[in-house]
Design a protein around this nucleic acid. Structure first.
Lengths: 217, 217
DNA sequence: CAATAATGTGAGCGATCGCTTACATTGTCT
DNA sequence: AGACAATGTAAGCGATCGCTCACATTATTG
């Protein structure tokens, strides 16, 4: 940790830099978040140096540290923004489907999750895979838990429409499977989600869930 | 890149270090692989410095670079070893199930994949999540593709026992779902795989797959 | 017992990292 | 206009990284 001699500073210049209040600084923050997302995707977490991020954003490294006290805080802000962008659509679907029959509800949730993943699939992958180990940046997992809880509640309410006894286990199976299939399709089989075929894929995943939950066979 | 002045080396001492031939060196290599796996799990890929790995293995940093030309090569060797350890059980199951009916076959494969993941779950996660971006260390994904191909072949052979038209798509759905559930259970819900409950979980996942593939409803 | 190959050692190089700090520029207010 | 707050700049510090190299030690061979 370097020195801290006050030299002949007229005063402590101001309060120790905080959040943006003028329009110019909001632009700076936005540019930083955007550049962070871009570089995270292109380079991965550890190769995304703060110097490189600042350069890409077109701002100085000093400005970066005026708004984000650490690299972790910067990435955390990106996680927040991304999670917020994804959550909206899924939450709406969860609300709507609460009173729908199993097949319709499943289809709606699956379609919403696919749509949510389209926002920024590669960023989503990097954040999910590389960020958790850094610290308590578990905003994404929080959304997952929210979905899980909602599905568990749905299964409890509609207990007479399916065969699952252990609603928690069944919700785990459904959410994990749908999430994984959505993820894998977006990242490994994007052709499955093309305009013409997306419906087919949604049908297929719906069949998986409905077949699993159906009352009898 | 530092200098390379020959000074008064009696000769180029030997061939530029290669693979192990004496027993002692095999111990060194094993210790390095073991330490690499341990530190990868504890620290993640980028925090696993070669210096730290060498220290943990109880050998000098120089010895590390006698057997592995780079950090990437070292990690690659760990990936190879881990993949080989996981692949055996799964391959056996794939062979055996080839002539079995859908439900039995599904159950066998699911059980084998869970068992394979028990070998070194945390290492598996790190390798899967952090290593791919480094380079062509895709040995794990190669195993995934092998499983996918075998399941697709199975579905083609047993076409009259299930309702899937697109065998490739169905294999994608089945393998992705089973892999994700196995993964998630091992890492997030280890209690599901305890001695008493593992059977229940296998039943549940089997029901998911069978319900998806069943001929009629 | 040499002599030589195989194996092991660790100080330290150049690069890069996250981050600090001394200072310059721009905006706001009276 | 002047004063001061808000915002922006970039050189560079200390730490750590992957990796090299000159050399020491141990095993094998004749």
């Amino acid at each position: 940790m370097p020195q801290r001699k006050p030299t002949r500073s007229r005063k402590p210049p101001t309060k120790p830099r905080k959040s943006a209040s003028q329009a110019r600084s909001r632009l700076t923050v936005d540019a930083l978040l955007e550049a962070t997302a871009r570089i995270l995707v292109k380079e991965g977490y550890d190769r995304a140096s703060t110097n490189k991020i600042a350069m890409t954003a077109g701002v100085s490294i000093g400005s970066l540290y005026q708004y984000f006290p650490s690299k972790e805080a910067l990435v955390s802000a990106v996680v927040d923004r991304h999670t917020r962008e994804m959550a909206g659509e899924v939450r709406e679907a969860l609300d709507r489907m609460a009173s729908w029959p199993v097949e319709t509800a499943a289809r709606a949730l699956i379609a919403a999750m696919i749509e949510a993943h389209r926002v920024a699939p590669q960023l989503h992958r990097i954040l999910e895979e590389q960020v958790p180990r850094v610290g308590r940046l578990e905003n994404i997992k929080a959304l997952d838990r929210e979905i899980h809880a909602a599905v568990r509640a749905y299964l409890a309410t509609h207990a007479n429409e399916h065969r699952a006894d252990d609603h928690d286990l069944a919700a785990f199976v459904c959410v994990t499977a749908v999430e994984a299939l959505t993820h894998a399709a977006v990242l490994q089989r994007p052709e499955l989600l093309s305009r013409e075929r997306a419906g087919m894929f949604i049908d297929e995943v719906t069949r998986l869930i409905v077949g699993y939950l159906q009352p009898k066979r």
